[in-house]
Simulated assay, not measured.
Amino acid sequence: MDQTEQHAPDSSDLSYCPAPAAPAGRVAGPPYADCVECGKPTEYGVATPGVVLCPVCEWQDAQRTACSG
């Protein structure tokens, strides 16, 4: 490989564990959407797109998907 073809690593080159994703386009309530896991009210309005979880299920999901170092 020619020295002129080398490039500095950018964020797409690095391996990392991404943070849990929050629902895109959060919409304020009321009315509040129900959690898809347990059915309890969430902090998101009913018009929020994507999967919405209550605070407890969000925390448990983050614990399940967290990096183990």
Rank of each mutant, 00 (worst) to 15 (best):
M1C: 12
M1Q: 12
D2S: 14
Q3I: 14
Q3A: 15
T4G: 08
T4K: 05
E5H: 14
E5K: 10
E5Y: 06
Q6L: 15
H7I: 13
A8V: 10
A8F: 14
P9F: 02
P9E: 11
S11D: 12
S12W: 00
D13Q: 05
L14D: 03
L14T: 03
L14G: 05
S15C: 08
S15T: 14
S15V: 13
Y16W: 09
Y16N: 00
C17R: 05
C17L: 13
P18V: 01
P18D: 00
P18C: 02
P18M: 01
P18S: 01
A19M: 06
A19C: 11
A19K: 06
A19L: 10
P20I: 02
A21D: 07
A21S: 13
A22H: 05
A22V: 08
A22D: 11
P23V: 08
P23L: 03
A24C: 08
A24S: 08
A24R: 05
A24G: 11
G25S: 11
G25W: 05
R26K: 13
V27G: 00
A28R: 11
A28E: 09
A28W: 08
A28K: 06
G29Y: 04
G29P: 11
P30C: 04
P30E: 04
P30D: 07
P31C: 02
Y32P: 09
Y32S: 06
Y32T: 10
A33T: 05
A33V: 03
A33Y: 01
D34R: 02
D34H: 11
D34S: 15
C35D: 03
C35T: 03
C35Q: 00
V36Q: 06
C38N: 07
C38M: 07
C38A: 11
C38D: 11
C38F: 02
K40W: 03
P41D: 08
P41R: 00
P41S: 04
T42H: 00
T42C: 10
T42N: 03
T42M: 05
T42E: 10
E43Y: 01
E43P: 06
E43R: 08
E43L: 13
Y44C: 07
Y44R: 01
G45L: 03
G45M: 08
G45S: 13
V46L: 12
V46R: 09
V46E: 15
A47H: 09
A47S: 13
A47I: 03
A47M: 12
P49G: 04
P49C: 05
G50W: 02
G50R: 01
V51A: 07
V51Y: 00
V52G: 04
V52Q: 01
V52K: 01
L53E: 02
P55I: 12
P55A: 01
P55W: 00
P55S: 12
V56N: 12
V56Q: 04
V56C: 10
V56T: 15
C57W: 01
C57Q: 01
C57L: 04
C57G: 07
E58I: 07
E58C: 11
W59A: 15
Q60R: 13
Q60M: 13
Q60V: 13
D61I: 04
D61M: 07
A62H: 02
A62W: 03
A62E: 10
A62S: 14
Q63T: 11
Q63I: 14
Q63W: 06
R64I: 10
R64E: 08
A66P: 05
A66S: 07
C67P: 11
C67F: 07
S68A: 14
S68W: 05
S68L: 14
S68N: 12
S68T: 13
G69M: 04
G69K: 01
